Each structure stands twice: as structure tokens, then as C-alpha cells.
Computed example of a mutant assay.
Amino acid sequence: MGALNLLPLVVLFAVVGGVGWVCYQVFLYSNELAERGVKKMEKKNVLFTKDGAKVGVKEVSAEAYADKTQRAFVKTWNAAQDGSPASSTRSRTK
């Protein structure tokens, strides 16, 4: 008769232990997922610190910046001189 009185207590401990194990597995998985996310963001030059997020900027040399700017200016200038439909020729035909 004494062993039957302990059966509900054993079942209770088994259920609590099972729920605790499931919660622990969820905790481990969430930490692993967070670490993967941090590593992925570090590849994109985003660092998370206690103060917040810091974003790194890729360095662009002055020469490369000047080349890109000049190229864009020349394309715009040429498009304006060609009289393409994007220029002011539409307003003259109306």
C-alpha cells in the first residue's frame, strides 16, 4: 500500500523532468541559432556589442570613387546630349 502512494509522486517527477528536458533543448537550439546569426552578420560587417550595433563600411579608394563619379557624370551628360526620350524632347512635341 505504501508503494502505491508514491506512484503519483514518481509520475510527477517524470513529467516535470520531461518538461525540463524539452525546455533545455529549446534553450540550446535558440543559443545555437543566435550564434549562427551573429556569425552571419559579422560576415556583413555588422557587430553587436553591449552599446548597440556597429556597422563597418567597406573602404573605397579615392581613385575608385572618382572613377565611378566621373563615369556616372559622363553617362548623364551623353544621355542629355543625345536627345533621348528621357530628355526634354517630349515637352517640345506637345
Rank of each mutant, 00 (worst) to 15 (best):
M1I: 01
M1Q: 08
M1W: 04
G2N: 14
G2D: 06
A3R: 14
L4P: 00
L4T: 08
L4R: 13
N5P: 00
L6T: 14
L6F: 05
L6N: 06
L6I: 11
L7P: 00
P8W: 07
P8M: 07
L9V: 10
L9G: 14
L9P: 00
V10F: 06
V11C: 00
L12Y: 09
F13H: 11
F13T: 13
F13E: 06
A14V: 11
V15A: 05
V15E: 02
V16D: 02
V16G: 00
G20C: 02
G20N: 10
V22S: 02
V22Q: 04
V22F: 04
C23M: 07
Q25K: 13
V26D: 02
F27I: 01
F27G: 04
Y29I: 06
S30W: 04
N31S: 08
E32H: 13
A34G: 03
E35Q: 15
E35Y: 08
R36K: 14
G37T: 06
K39V: 07
K39Q: 15
K40V: 09
M41F: 11
M41G: 02
M41C: 07
M41P: 01
E42K: 15
K43E: 14
K44R: 12
K44E: 13
N45E: 12
F48D: 03
T49N: 02
T49P: 00
K50L: 11
A53S: 09
V55N: 00
V55P: 01
V57H: 04
K58Q: 08
V60F: 07
V60L: 04
S61G: 05
S61W: 05
E63N: 09
A64R: 14
A66T: 08
A66Q: 12
A66I: 05
D67H: 07
D67I: 13
D67T: 11
K68F: 06
K68V: 07
K68A: 15
T69I: 12
T69H: 08
T69N: 03
Q70E: 13
R71Q: 14
A72V: 10
A72C: 03
F73A: 15
K75T: 10
W77N: 08
Q81W: 05
Q81K: 15
Q81H: 04
D82E: 09
D82W: 04
D82N: 05
G83F: 03
S84H: 03
S84G: 09
P85Q: 03
P85I: 09
A86G: 13
A86M: 09
S87F: 05
S87E: 12
S88I: 11
R90M: 12
R92H: 07
K94L: 14
